[in-house]
Design a protein around this nucleic acid. Structure first.
Length: 479
RNA sequence: GGCGGCAUAGCCAAGGGGUAAGGCGGAGGACUGCAAAUCCUCUAUUCCCCGGUUCGAGUCCGGGUGCCGCCUCCA
C-alpha cells in the first residue's frame, strides 16, 4: 500500500509522490523565539518529526528545513503594532539578538528532550535578509508589488490564485472585516513584503527602499525555496497559519517563480487546555518545561501521538496521567524483553509471537500509510505488547523470537515514532540500590517483614519502586 | 456574517457500507508473606438527534443540535 497524505489544498487524501523520486523536501514553519515553547509547539513538532521519520523509514532521502523566526513581526495587521521580539527584549532589558539566542536554545533543549530529530537546516530569518530583498525585487520587477514611501506591498489583485488554500474569496468578504485600512495599500487585502522602519525600530536593515525589515510572510518563501527549490514537496505548519500566512506565501512564491510552490500542504490541529484555546494573547499556555515537571518527556510524546495530528487535543491532568501510565507500560515491556534476551534459550522461532510481530508490523504500516495515523499505529504496538508480555509470562520464548520483538520495537516505536526507551538508573546510585536489595533479601529470608517493608516504603517515598517478582527483586524509578 | 473542523464507553482515541482497534480507569480471579509488576476474564447490542438510501449505516445523503478553530500575532 502506498502512503496517502491529506492535502489542505485539495481537502482530500492524495497518494504521496514527491517531485523527484526518492527525495523529499519538507519545510515546516518554526517558532518565533521570544518565549519558552509551549505544548502547542510540542504537538506540532512531534507530529512533523514523525512525518519525517516515517518518510525516512520508507526509504526516502529527506531534507527537513524548519526556520527560526528571529525577526520580529508586527502584533497587528493594521501595521501599527509592536514588534514582539523588540517588545520582549525591552521588557527583559536585553539586546534583541540576546533574547533570541536564549529562547532559541530553550526551544532546541525542549525539542531534544521530547525526542525530536533536529531539522537538517534551521535557517534564521535574520541571516537571510539579502534573499528576502531579492524576492521583493523580483516581485516588483514582475509587477506583482508596488512601493509606497519605503514600504513594499504585494498586490493580491494581480495574483489570480489568492485564496485557493484557505477557500476565501477576498474581494467580496473583505468588507466584513473591520480593520482600519492602511492608506498606503491599494487593496485592503494587500500585504507587506517590506516595511519601512519607523524611528526607534531597532531591528532593521538597509534595502533599495531605505531602512526597513521584511514582511511577516516573506522569510518562509525565501528560505524554503533557497534550500528546497522552487517547488517543495511538503510544507507544514499549524492550522492557524493557513490564513493569512500560508496563503500569502503561495502568492509571493508562485508570483515570483511561476511554478507551483508546494505539492502537499499539511496542517496540524490545535491544543486546548482543559477545554479552552491556548493562546499567547490569552496567557494561559502551558510551557513544555512546566509539563515536564509532572510528566516524563516520552509520556508527553505518547499523549501527542495518541491523537491524530489533524485532530484537536485537550491537555488535561487525566489525559496526561493516562499517557504517563501507558508510556511506563510500553517502556517496561521493552526493558523486560531486553532483560530476557540475555538468558533466553536458543531455539527456533515461536510461531505465535512471530506471527504477532508480523501482524504488528503490517497494522502499523497500514495505519501510518493512511495519513500518518499514529493512534492506529500505537494501537498495533500495544496489541503486540500484550502478546509479548503474555508470552514472557507463560513460557520462555527463544532468543531468536525475542530479538525479532526487540528489533520491531526499536524500528517502529523507536525509529518511526521517536520513543526513547531507557533503562532506569546508572552509576553509583544503581550500585547502592543493588546493595539495599541484597540486604533486604536477607531480611526476607529471615522473615523480617517489618524491616523489609520499611525499606520498600522509604524507597517508594524517594521515587524508587521495589518489585518482588517470582524471579527476584527488581527496582525501578516511577514517573 | 464568511471559511473550515469535530461529536464513538467513566476519561482519551482509532475505524469510515458487512456487524465496534488500542490506552487509561474500574470489577473479579491467578501469582505474592504483604504490596507492586505481570497474566487471565469482564467493562459500547451500539457510535449527538431526526429523517432517507440500502439486504445491511458510526460509516453514504438531507435536516437539526452542540462544541471548537480561522477570518488580528500564535504551532
Amino acid at each position: 500500500m502506498a502512503l496517502r497524505v491529506y492535502n489542505t489544498l485539495s481537502r482530500r487524501k492524495e497518494e504521496f509522490r514527491p517531485l523527484h523520486e526518492g527525495f523529499v523536501g519538507i519545510y515546516v514553519c518554526g517558532p518565533t523565539v521570544y518565549d519558552h515553547p509551549h505544548i502547542g509547539h510540542a504537538k506540532s513538532y512531534i507530529s512533523f518529526d514523525v512525518v519525517v521519520r516515517y518518510l525516512r523509514h520508507l526509504g526516502y532521502r529527506v531534507r527537513y528545513v524548519q526556520n527560526i523566526t528571529d525577526v520580529g513581526h508586527l502584533t497587528d495587521n493594521a501595521d501599527q503594532g509592536e514588534d514582539k521580539i523588540e517588545k520582549r527584549a525591552a521588557a527583559e532589558r536585553l539586546e534583541p539578538m540576546e533574547l533570541v539566542e536564549i529562547y532559541m536554545r530553550s526551544y532546541f533543549e525542549d525539542m531534544d528532550a521530547l525526542g525530536n530529530l533536529r531539522p537538517d537546516i534551521s535557517p534564521r530569518a535574520s541571516g537571510h535578509i539579502p534573499e528576502q530583498i531579492e524576492l521583493v525585487k523580483v516581485l516588483l520587477d514582475k509587477g506583482y508589488a508596488y512601493e509606497v514611501g519605503g514600504s513594499v506591498y504585494f498586490s493580491v489583485e494581480k495574483f489570480g490564485g489568492y485564496g485557493k488554500l484557505s477557500g476565501r474569496r477576498f474581494q467580496e468578504q473583505w468588507e466584513a472585516v473591520r480593520i482600519a485600512p492602511n492608506p498606503e495599500k491599494r487593496h485592503p487585502a494587500d500585504f507587506a513584503l517590506w516595511k519601512r522602519a519607523e524611528p526607534g525600530h531597532i531591528l532593521r536593515w538597509p534595502s533599495p527602499w531605505g531602512w526597513g525589515y521584511p514582511g511577516w510572510h516573506l522569510e518562509c518563501s525565501a528560505m524554503s525555496m533557497k534550500y528546497l527549490g522552487e517547488t517543495l514537496d511538503i510544507h507544514g505548519g499549524g492550522m492557524e497559519n493557513i490564513f493569512p500566512h500560508h496563503e500569502c506565501e503561495i502568492a509571493q512564491s508562485e508570483a515570483a517563480t511561476g511554478k507551483p510552490f508546494v505539492r502537499y500542504w499539511m496542517h496540524n490541529n490545535m491544543v486546548t487546555v482543559e477545554g479552552t484555546k491556548m493562546g499567547k494573547s490569552l496567557g494561559n499556555f502551558v510551557t513544555i518545561k512546566e509539563a515536564l515537571k509532572s510528566y516524563s518527556p516520552m509520556a508527553l510524546r505518547l499523549f501527542v501521538l495518541g491523537s491524530h495530528y489533524r485532530s484537536p487535543v485537550d491537555y488535561t491532568e487525566e489525559a496526561m496521567r493516562a499517557a504517563q501510565r501507558g508510556w511506563e507500560r510500553l517502556n517496561r515491556a521493552v526493558q523486560m524483553v531486553k532483560e530476557r534476551i540475555r538468558y533466553a534459550p536458543d531455539g527456533p522461532e515461536d510461531r505465535e509471537l512471530s506471527e504477532a510481530v508480523r501482524r504488528c508490523e503490517r497494522d502499523f504500516s497500514e495505519a501510518m500509510d493512511d495519513d500518518f495515523n499514529t493512534p492506529g499505529a500505537l494501537g498495533a504496538l500495544f496489541e503486540l505488547t500484550r502478546e509479548v508480555l503474555a508470552g514472557l509470562e507463560s513460557g520462555t520464548p527463544s532468543r531468536t523470537t525475542l530479538k525479532k520483538v526487540e528489533d520491531l520495537y526499536s524500528r517502529l516505536a523507536g525509529g518511526v515514532l521517536g520513543f526513547r526507551f531507557e533503562e532506569e538508573g546508572g552509576g553509583r546510585e544503581e550500585e547502592l540500590l543493588d546493595l539495599l536489595v541484597e540486604v533486604r533479601a536477607e531480611l526476607r529470608r529471615a522473615k523480617n517483614w517489618e524491616l523489609a517493608d520499611r525499606i520498600r516504603e522509604r524507597l517508594r517515598e524517594l521515587g524508587i519502586a521495589l518489585e518482588d517478582r517470582p524471579e527476584g527483586t527488581v527496582w525501578r524509578r516511577y514517573s
